[in-house]
Nucleic acid binder design. Sequence first.
DNA 1: GCGATTTCATTGCATCCGCTATGAAATCTT
DNA 2: AAGATTTCATAGCGGATGCAATGAAATCGC
Lengths: 161, 161
Amino acid sequence: MTDQSPPPLPEFDLLGFTPYRLAVAAKRTSEALAKQYRSRFGISIPEWRVLVHLAYAGNVSVRDIEARVAMEKYEVSRAAKRLEEAGLIEKRAHQTDRRLVDLALTAKGRLMMAELLPIARAHQEALEARLGDAFEQLETGLEKLLEDIEPFSTEKQAPRG
Amino acid sequence: MTDQSPPPLPEFDLLGFTPYRLAVAAKRTSEALAKQYRSRFGISIPEWRVLVHLAYAGNVSVRDIEARVAMEKYEVSRAAKRLEEAGLIEKRAHQTDRRLVDLALTAKGRLMMAELLPIARAHQEALEARLGDAFEQLETGLEKLLEDIEPFSTEKQAPRG
DNA sequence: GCGATTTCATTGCATCCGCTATGAAATCTT
DNA sequence: AAGATTTCATAGCGGATGCAATGAAATCGC
């Protein structure tokens, strides 16, 4: 006789699945802020990441940003293109290595960041306040989770000043 | 005299910014698995989420899945469309409410899930093992972070068995 | 020093995504 | 019980994303 009843599937709890939980948490924590970035300043998350990096790293190439921030090269490239079109950053050819493109904030970009950064900071503080003690725990977990991906600049850090 | 030096920007550490860290963590933990889903089974993350839900929730509508899993209605709808085209799920009109679409795994879908679920489970276990004690901490943090979004079924739970 | 290889950045293409509008069916209102 | 409102699912459209291919410049190997 052929078996009519389907074979039982192994139990699996999606809501307890760590990759899922992290994805939801990431979306949840960035949603409100990303909406502000977009509606008030017209920038996306990849663009925001590039801007933040430029805000405290001076002139850097696409490659540098890719290495530091968890972004693919083409993401950086496209973000940079849009930011340049918006007049927020400038691209300049590198002095000695003409393959590299040096990125830097324009005055307009700096002004915008001067407005944006405190908002992000406040967001972070609100988040920490809401989590209370749980924030430390979250951090411990994230630290461990990211530990062998975080120390980006293992081989490429020399060229940077 | 005009001020030539740019105004100093407030300090901001992107690498310590929780939304950023969560995004990286989410990407990192799902990357390897998602690649397998895609290359070996041809399914995306939204599709995977729908499948998992169907695997242990029997017949459900798009609306049900939207309520349980953190997905928008149109994401579920499109995932369902692709899954139907792939022969992994079946859509049927609901008995009494013809607006609803009941989704259910096909035999083919069940077979695939029987293969997929143990892989996901092993992935979770490997992750927990790698994190060690830090896993509990991560969980505590995530729990708190998600707490007021997690209890989905507040109003719509009655219809489900 | 010159061709082969590698590195850096961008782009083409196909797909995917988010938002909004649409259509269909049920429920509410009077 | 008929019209207005709400709920459910999908489709259209513009833009974003991922991947692989391309182009340009530097470095390597002989």
